[in-house]
């Protein structure tokens, strides 16, 4: 299996599968967020009993973390190798070739997402699962309230929305690109996959943004 890391298509496969896995996770994450709008109690139940510091949630977290790390490591490897492959001398005239903006800026968009992840992980995960696991003081079990506390700050809302927009661009290219990489594409499916990618990225990002605004404006726990 060494071809996975030794060949260009193998490396792209790693990037593609890890990316698709992260998209699946985002869909799951979004459904959790939506629960928050309806009921804090259900949210906290899910967060503490289903997720929390259970062995399966820990395994899940580790697998997810591995996915993120692999995706970032290969993002760096691919971007560096491609930069070198471009050659030492660059064109003096700016490229006028019309291509999708996001396809040229996947790494930069990814960096925005990483910056967001640092903030987000510190604000949420560190306060809950991490502190719980390592017996650090000040563990929060009231996940829903924690989210409300964090997201009622305006700067947090703005930072989150900026990151979501970066994510939207990343997924707009990433979704169809990932399927293209695994070989699932042809002239007919190209249009469909691009449209589906547009739909999936909009669904995820719009969902996140709507929930963030709802929390910021106090529209949560609506069923109570």
């Amino acid at each position: 299996m060494s071809w996975l890391i030794k060949s260009s298509i193998g490396r792209k496969l790693i990037q593609s599968i890890s990316g698709l896995f992260l998209i699946l996770f985002l869909l799951f994450h979004l459904s959790m967020n939506v629960v928050l709008i309806f009921s804090h109690e259900t949210y906290d139940f899910l967060a503490n009993e289903i997720l929390g510091a259970n062995w399966w949630a820990i395994v899940g977290t580790l697998v997810l973390g591995l996915g993120v790390v692999v995706h970032i490591i290969y993002a760096v490897i691919l971007t560096l190798q491609n930069w070198i492959a471009r050659g030492r001398n660059r064109y003096a005239s700016k490229s006028k070739t019309q291509v999708a903006w996001s396809s040229k800026n996947m790494f930069v968009l990814g960096v925005f997402i990483v910056l967001f992840l640092f903030i987000h992980m510190y604000q949420m995960w560190y306060q809950m699962q991490f502190k719980d696991l390592f017996g650090i003081e000040g563990v929060r079990h009231d996940g829903a309230q924690l989210v409300v506390d964090v997201l009622s700050q305006t700067w947090v809302l703005i930072a989150y929305v900026v990151a979501f927009i970066a994510l939207w661009f990343h997924l707009n290219h990433g979704f169809w690109s990932a399927l293209h990489t695994v070989g699932w594409n042809n002239d007919i499916w190209m249009k469909r996959l691009k449209r589906l990618g547009y739909f999936v990225s909009t669904l995820i990002v719009l969902g996140f943004i709507v929930v963030a605004f709802a929390v910021y404006l106090g529209y949560t726990n609506l069923l109570v």
Binding site: S8, A85, V99, M106
Partner: peptide
């Protein structure tokens, strides 16, 4: 593909500039 990689060409990220 092995030869292409060996000769120092980059990893395709599907920007589509080639096709254009």
């Amino acid at each position: 593909v092995a030869k292409m990689d060996e000769l120092g060409f980059g990893n395709c990220t599907n920007t589509g500039a080639c096709e254009v």
